[in-house]
Design a protein around this nucleic acid. Sequence first.
DNA 1: CAGCATCCAGCTTGATACTG
DNA 2: CAGTATCAAGCTGGATGCTG
Lengths: 133, 133
Amino acid sequence: MNGTQERAEDQDLAYNVFAKACPSRGTLEHVTGRWGGLTLGALYEGSMRFNELRRRVDGVSEKMLSQTLHALERDGLVHREAQPTNPPRVDYELTPVGREVAERLLALIHCVEGRMDDVLAARERYDETRGAL
Amino acid sequence: MNGTQERAEDQDLAYNVFAKACPSRGTLEHVTGRWGGLTLGALYEGSMRFNELRRRVDGVSEKMLSQTLHALERDGLVHREAQPTNPPRVDYELTPVGREVAERLLALIHCVEGRMDDVLAARERYDETRGAL
DNA sequence: CAGCATCCAGCTTGATACTG
DNA sequence: CAGTATCAAGCTGGATGCTG
């Protein structure tokens, strides 16, 4: 009924995640990836140091956090502020664009968290009817 | 300044994605995963059949789409309506909860798409200064 | 059309060890 | 503290072939 209608908005946009080759797909994956989302979410609470982030994002390894941070910095979502002191101190914070993205991301996260009771209930029903077959 | 303040909201919520063991983390991954997000986004445009979805979500394989759909159905975000006709016809559509989640997700997607020029510019700057070193 | 089962390459990830 | 380097293991995902 409205497929072609709504699809029209794709034409208006310069970028379209639905297209395999669109660069927005890559960035979306950095943002929504396993650690990208949590990192942005954590940083939304304020500037943080490397090991602070590591503690906040439960389960992330040093390597993955480092990698995630590099990708987000490259995309201009996170700013890295290194002080050449000893011991070194490096602070990470969201850029204005990063903040915008993080806001939407947190809205999504909170939405999911807020619906988990429904989700868990749905899962039980699903597993039940499946187990019965 | 506001770390502990804002962190307080974690206590209020029954679920918290930042905790490694929280089930919301898994659901968030279904939603934001490589194909989950695009599938929900496509379904937001309206009910679709399996192969319709496959064409819409550029690049997804049969296996991955099937897998993704199962996860989303189990989480109660997508409803599967199978008609026992021949040839078989199966329609997928968002549930009310799925629709809510998809809305937030699309807000995020459109935000990223809308900021791609900034992202791409940031990348160039990043690669330049890095390549120079 | 709408899928499931299997095989397998390769990318992702986590441990571990090391550097400045 | 803030990372980088390396390696093995495991999971992801694509190709193929088959079913109802």
